Simulated assay, not measured.
Amino acid sequence: MGATWLKPDFGRRRDKAACREMIRGGSRSFFFASLLLPPPLRDPAYAIYAFCRLSDDTVDDCEVTGLAPVESLYERLDLAYAGRPLDTPADRAFAETVDLYGIPRALPAALLEGMAWDCQDKRYETLEDLHDYAARVAGTVGAMMSLLLGARDPVVVARACDLGVAMQLTNICRDVGEDARRGRIYLPRAWMRGVGLDPECWLADPKPGPALASIVKRLLAEADRLYDRAATGIAGLPSGCRPAIHAARLFYREIGYDVLRAGGDSVTRRAVVPGDRKAALVASALAAAARRTEVDPSPPLVCNRFLVDAARNAPEPKLEPGPLGRAMRRIDNRVGWTVELFLELEQRERAAQMAAAARG
């Protein structure tokens, strides 16, 4: 007897709106890229990212509070998977998403493990150590998104995890100064000592310089390697989903390029990708999505193997694929609107900044 499919009628309207606004305010690059997703998939994607954002915000003060916030997140995760989520929009939407799309608990649980490492002030000596961290806090998101988009081939999931790790390495390079002001270093400490920087001494007085820039450039080169490999995996996604994921890849990669244009200085400045630049990158994303590409069959990074295995053993989704597939093909008419929205949002932000400066 065949599966009993459910219609893709996702979530409560208020919950969806709350998750959407959480992402719009907290992860603009992902929000912009998400506008290229087929409409039925946007709100479930927001639900996943909203839970990740909520988790990240919960552990922000764990240097003071210890592991208690992470323990509370594990409890919330258990409730979500038991079908009894906490009475918040993010929890309700996340519980529904993981149930409908067959996302195994091992994936968000690994995300929380990475956040526990933050609370424990875990140190990363080598690139492989940093890969382990990035796999948990970002490779997990790649695996969950792959399942959400209906791609369960282990090679495609491995490339999605590559993309997550690459994005996290970019985030680390962008946030060197911000992390240092919070008493944290995510750059490989062995690399720092290799260029004459004592990690603890530098942390006491974080400043940019040629030595630090060489490490940032080296880490961004590793991110670039993974972005290139991940790009091939996007070809394994449903065609209507490819432009959005290529856009996310290009947006995050551009953050790294902005760091490089500043000489590798992410201590005194924070790299950004303005809305008009994002709009220009949409054309590149569409071109990349249209190209025929063979998925790179390389095995997953060692750090990502357990994520690929978890996705391979994921339960079947409960959603009916037919209507979703048809919606995925209706993308061309959205592209011009999306570009216009990027530009409008950028103009609004600039106007708000000017008004705030005038009031100050």
Rank of each mutant, 00 (worst) to 15 (best):
A248P: 03
W337H: 06
R330S: 10
E316S: 14
V295G: 07
K318T: 05
R330I: 15
F251W: 05
Y252F: 02
N304R: 05
G336P: 06
N313F: 14
S266F: 01
F251Q: 04
A271F: 01
R269W: 05
S284L: 14
R261L: 13
R249P: 02
W337Q: 12
R253S: 12
V335N: 08
L286G: 08
G275C: 13
T293E: 15
A287E: 07
L319F: 08
R312E: 14
P274S: 05
V335Q: 08
R312A: 15
R305Y: 05
A262S: 12
R253W: 04
D276Q: 13
R292N: 07
K318H: 15
F251I: 00
G256P: 06
M328A: 13
D276N: 12
E316R: 14
A310S: 15
P297S: 04
E316C: 11
N333E: 08
Y257R: 09
D332M: 08
G264V: 02
A311S: 10
E254V: 00
L301H: 03
V302S: 02
K278F: 02
A279F: 09
E254F: 04
R249Y: 07
R261T: 05
L260V: 04
R270P: 00
D309N: 12
F251C: 04
P323C: 09
R277S: 07
L286Y: 06
G275R: 07
L250V: 14
P300I: 01
R277W: 11
A311H: 12
A287T: 09
G325S: 12
R291T: 05
Y252H: 04
L319K: 09
K278R: 15
V273F: 05
N304M: 00
V335P: 08
L324T: 14
A288K: 10
D332R: 09
D276E: 14
P299V: 03
R305D: 05
R291N: 04
P321D: 10
P297W: 02
Y257W: 06
P315T: 10
R305N: 07
L324G: 14
I331V: 15
S298R: 01
R330P: 08
E254W: 08
A327H: 11
A290K: 10
Y257P: 06
N333Q: 10
A289K: 04
P300F: 00
G275M: 13
P317G: 13
R334S: 12
A248Y: 02
A290Q: 13
N313T: 14
A311K: 13
A283I: 11
A271G: 10
P321T: 11
W337N: 03
R330F: 13
L307H: 03
D276A: 14
L324H: 11
A285H: 07
R270M: 00
L250N: 14
P299C: 00
G336C: 09
E320P: 11
R305C: 08
G256C: 06
Y252K: 00
P299M: 00
V272G: 00
N304D: 00
I255D: 01
D332Y: 06
L286K: 03
R261G: 06
E254S: 11
A271H: 04
I255A: 02
I331G: 15
A248F: 09
C303K: 09
R326Y: 11
R312M: 10
A271Y: 01
A271I: 04
A289C: 01
D258C: 03
V259P: 07
D296M: 01
F251L: 08
L319Y: 12
G263V: 07
D332T: 11
A271V: 01
N333S: 15
V302T: 01
T293D: 13
N313P: 07
R334C: 11
R270C: 02
